[in-house]
Amino acid sequence: MSDTKTKKKRKEKPPIEEPLLAPGHRACSGCGESLGAKLVMDAAGPNTYATCCTGCLEVFSTPYPESAWKMPWIHSLFENSSAVAAGIEAALIAQGRDKDVNIIAMGGDGGTADIGIGCLSGMLERGHNILYVCFDNEAYMNTGVQRSGLTPFDARTSTSPPGKRSWGNKTTKKNLPGIAGAHGIPYVATATVGYPNDLINKVKKALKIQGPKYMQVHVPCPLGWIHPTDQTIEIAKLAVLTGLIPIYEMEYGEVTRVRKIGKNRRPVEDYLKPQGRFRHLFAKGAEAEEELEKIRQIAEDNIKKFGLA
């Protein structure tokens, strides 16, 4: 084994540098969001100003008096990460320092889809040169797994508990990339930590485009989704392969590229079964089967809508 290894002459790889999201932060073991933030920041590079919504990402990365970020980073309120980023952009332009710098506004799904959607819409409408990254872990994980606008159908959260009269969250995921795309902005993309290279390429591509950009990164949460910590990447991949999380790019409101599933398509049960938040769907009985059928229909609709097959 080792002989073949030495025979093959490989291109020398650059030395590994410490990520721009330094270790020592308080993210849970196996956190998808910290992985997503690390990948986004390393793709953007050190010439970046970052703003952040309240949420897991803010709380775990900056416990008083420390900060895990190795670039200028600011947190103000829950809803205004995009508005603060817009202010930073205006200040940099006024000072003539807006060349070769990236401005990234970050938020969780709650801070983006529910609380901060007004500020986000304003930022997209005014045409600031900012990349907004939404880390979508499908609930308010920081405060104890309450449902958000991006919580998927039938998921258990602490405010949508399944029981005799409920199958969990009653609503489907809000189509936030669609809402962002409807602003007619130059670039909208969805990505997942399950495909890290795709995520890195999309961040690099987005930062080269002038104008407002929106990215939604699907990040598993072992705590809220109730799955083993080492399955973070696997579950993120399964979400894509079942058709529940379509990966695509939009330019000026039109879908331009999609990640095809094709023959690799998996049944939705493969994604739902390892997660504790969907455990109630695997109870015996016709009703549970009915609920599963509804989720299969969501996947089917996605595949039809984006042409993933």
Binding site: P23, C31, S34, V193
Partner: peptide, 28 residues
């Protein structure tokens, strides 16, 4: 190195190791 959520795997030339000061043992 790419998938470590804490970015604490270092090394070169097929010899890699985690920084056990920070490794949370997630197993990814």
């Amino acid at each position: 190195v790419l998938v470590c959520p804490d970015g604490i795997i270092f090394g070169a030339d097929s010899i890699y190791d985690a920084d056990f000061d920070f490794c949370k043992g997630c197993g990814i």
